[in-house]
Each structure stands twice: as structure tokens, then as C-alpha cells.
Amino acid sequence: MGLDFAALAPSYPFILRGIWVTLQIVAVAAVLGFLFGVILSLMKIGRFTFLRWIADAYTSVFRGTPLVLQLMIIYFGLPQVLGIEIAPFVAAFSAFALNSAAYVSEIIRAGINAVDQGQKEAAQALGISYGEMMKDIILPQAMKNILPALMNEFITLTKESAIVTTIGVMDIMRRAYIVGGETFSYFEPLLFAGFIYYCLVMVLTVLGRLVERRLRQSD
């Protein structure tokens, strides 16, 4: 039997509405994960051993366990302990933000370490404080180096967000799956969902290149 995308036509809007859901989760998780990742990376390179230890342990745990497990612990497990219900959307972006922060912190740490040591010395010799040096001298240079790796992380986040299906969030993936169940043909809606994810990733890739070009203006 052949594929019948025309029969899927009435369901396109339903699946497409999932884009907004997916984007919301990814955007909130990316921003929170990035900010938290910056904090973790600063803890890792700072001089306080205790903070370094915490940040390393955090990264180790969140990189060492499956994302879907973290998601389920937050959504199904935590309410049992906290005694409050957590909305699927909140559980989704929390899990992704916490997980992404672990990866982002490693990317940023490597980026900071790759900045020439002389930059730090020049800043110190001018009497610039540690905080200002990080904010205005070191991090901007680190960001330029790590942008491709960071973009990669956002792309991964976009694709991996499909696992929120498992806690019932109505994202692109879940909608495609539901349509498949209703029409008894899974192939077309799933292919369509794949096409949407691919387009999202392409848009991200182009955005990344544009930002990279802007940052390269000082070269």
C-alpha cells in the first residue's frame, strides 16, 4: 500500500499547533539552562573548592542519567515528596533546563579556559575586578569560541524535547502520535512530525550562523 498524505490533511493544523508547545518548552529551557550553565561554569573555574565540588557533582549526575528518567522523576516522582502537583509544561521545561545546564556549563568552562591567559593578566594589571573581567573581557571572548557548540546543544534540546510526549505534553510528537492512532496510519503523521522538527533545526542552524557572523566582526 502507498502513503496517503491527502487523508492526513484535516489533521495538519492539529499537529502544527504543537510547534508552539515545543517552541515554548525549548525556549524557556534554553534560556534557564544557559543562565544556570553560566553560573555552574563560574563555580567550576572559581577558587572555592566547595562550589567547584558541587558543580562537578551536579554535572556528573545530570549527564550520567537518562533525560527521560529525570523528566519522569520531576513529573511523577516529585509530587509524591512535595505533595503538590507539577504541571506537565513546568516539569518539561524544568527537566530540560536542569539537564541542559549540565552540558552548557561544560561547554562554557572549556570556552573560558580557551581564552588566552594573557587576557586575564592584562585585566588584572589594569586593576579590573574579577567580576567585571569575567563579564566584559573573558565571557564575551569565550562566547564567540563556543557558539557552534552551544548551537549544537540548542539543536539537541529541540529534538530531544520530543520525549515530553511521555508525560502527556501536547507537543508536535504527541499530536502526530495521536493522529496516527485515530486514523490507524502512523507513517504519514510521524513523517510529517519529522519534517517539522527538521525545519525547526534548520532555522536554528541559520540563526546560529547569523549570530556567529556578527560576533566575528572584530576579526
Partner: peptide, 15 residues
């Protein structure tokens, strides 16, 4: 350090 300027072999300008 504010009161002592330093010039390095490899300049270390902020790029």
C-alpha cells in the same frame, strides 16, 4: 595594580 601600568610581550589587547 591601578597605579602600576604593565606592557606585555604579546600585547594582550582585548580583541
Amino acid at each position: 595594580r591601578e597605579n602600576i601600568g604593565m606592557v606585555f610581550q604579546h600585547f594582550h589587547l582585548f580583541p
